[in-house]
Design a protein around this nucleic acid. Structure first.
Lengths: 237, 237
DNA sequence: CGTGCTTTTGAATAGTATCAAGGCCGGTGG
DNA sequence: CCACCGGCCTTGATACTATTCAAAAGCACG
């Protein structure tokens, strides 16, 4: 169950990349006062598919996966998000895309309702511009992903999913190698394929010395080697 | 060759959905004075892949395709844009994604350089917010496209490409039916497949009475029928 | 009326999803 | 501590879809 712990105010928050930090001191205090903050344990839904969202969520700490299911039941990971990222905000209220967000590990999330958010847009130019730039960049990334996914082989898509997951939710072990603790199923949902294919690709890459396995946990032994598989697509990694 | 005709000022421009219309009168006049405006004939590159872009382009009239090639030579249509849309703007200068824009028919394009644009952002809150909302919506569309393209069959992708192209660049004939004048190759570049498959799908759809052909031009005879092929994915159409 | 480009259709091939079975790991309870 | 159980992972065989290759037909142009 979501926990309400002591709220971390925006003034004391150390997530420097958070967009809220771009508001002026007066507004920082105001947002800090009116925001809602909840700690979600691993696996918990922050907001679920189908239900409308009346504001925006800012990640204070932890990792989140944004998911979307087709009506045939297939779930898909649309993107991964970490501290400083923003999610759930809708351009128009009537839009009702079935998107949900799930905590990958314990995540502290701040919620701003639409009225507060819109007031903040009107009164904090740099805040608005930064969020606009964020969307612009995410759009380009998404378009590139679109384009390359239409051309990549399954092996390449899986390699991409591993690199991408490593960037956002990877943790370094004592040797400085990136460890990924997502299931094969989750990686398949990022790569747009199925768990079996992910498993096959991982086997190939293990044989090539690019990865090693520690139980079910994936360790990237040779990161440049993995990137090399994606060299044709390097512009969007 | 691009033509410099009499410049249409922002005050007299009738493209009401243009974002520039959201600036205050003082800024509308200023942008109108400093913007650059060019009419590009059909097939002409507005900006090409690889070359850096130092501002943003606003479409006053006409249709544009945003393209991107992989180094293996395959060209892909990232999105279609029409009057009122914005393109070319980059979140950060260092990003250098290989994206180009080509006029599908004669198109009048206004260019604002980065300095002018950024100044306008700082001084016109509603202008900035509207562009932010535009990106937010485009991002969602792109993510949905991503997701569904991973699940669609080729026939469904082609059906999507036809519907999408009809919306942006379709023209109604005297019977009120939508006509599309893109080549099979261009439709394939939207659908993420090849011209042969597009041709096959069109044949199927023609046999089912959904389309008819007038020379190489596609006419959508039964639009609800085509939509019906995409009923599983209706959220993002 | 030919020439070159696009479109259409067919056949062969390759790649991927699906189905199925066995192995591994972690957790639970005796 | 060990045995069992369930879920996840791995691997193989099969079927199918889509790409590629190839060739003929249609259309636009000089």
């Amino acid at each position: 169950m979501p926990q309400k712990t002591n709220k971390i105010s925006c003034e004391e928050c150390t997530t420097t990349s958070c967009f809220v930090k771009r508001t002026n001191p007066e507004w920082l205090a105001k947002i800090s006062e009116f925001k809602n903050q909840v700690v979600y344990p691993k696996g918990q839904y922050i907001f679920s598919e189908g239900s409308p969202v009346f504001g925006a969520y800012f990640i204070q700490s932890g990792d989140v996966k944004i998911v979307s299911s087709s009506f045939s039941g297939k779930q898909n990971i649309v993107r991964l998000a970490k501290a400083g990222h923003m999610m759930g905000h809708k351009g128009e209220a009537k839009e009702n895309y079935p998107i949900g967000a799930v905590a990958i590990n314990d995540a502290r999330i701040c919620f701003l309702n639409n009225e507060l958010l819109y007031d903040a847009f009107l009164n904090n130019t740099h805040f608005t511009i930064d969020i606009m730039m964020f969307y612009s960049k995410e759009l380009r990334k998404s378009e590139m992903r679109n384009k390359f996914f239409a051309q990549m082989t399954t092996d390449e898509k899986v390699a991409y999913a591993i690199v991408y997951a490593g960037e956002i939710v990877g943790e370094k072990n004592n040797k400085g190698k990136i460890m990924i603790m997502l299931s094969r199923q989750e990686l398949a949902q990022i790569a747009g394929t199925n768990a079996e294919q992910v498993s096959r690709t991982i086997s190939h890459m293990k044989n090539d010395g690019l990865l090693s396995l520690d139980g079910r946990c994936i360790c990237i032994e040779n990161l440049p080697g993995v990137y090399n598989l994606l060299s044709e697509y390097e512009q969007f990694i």
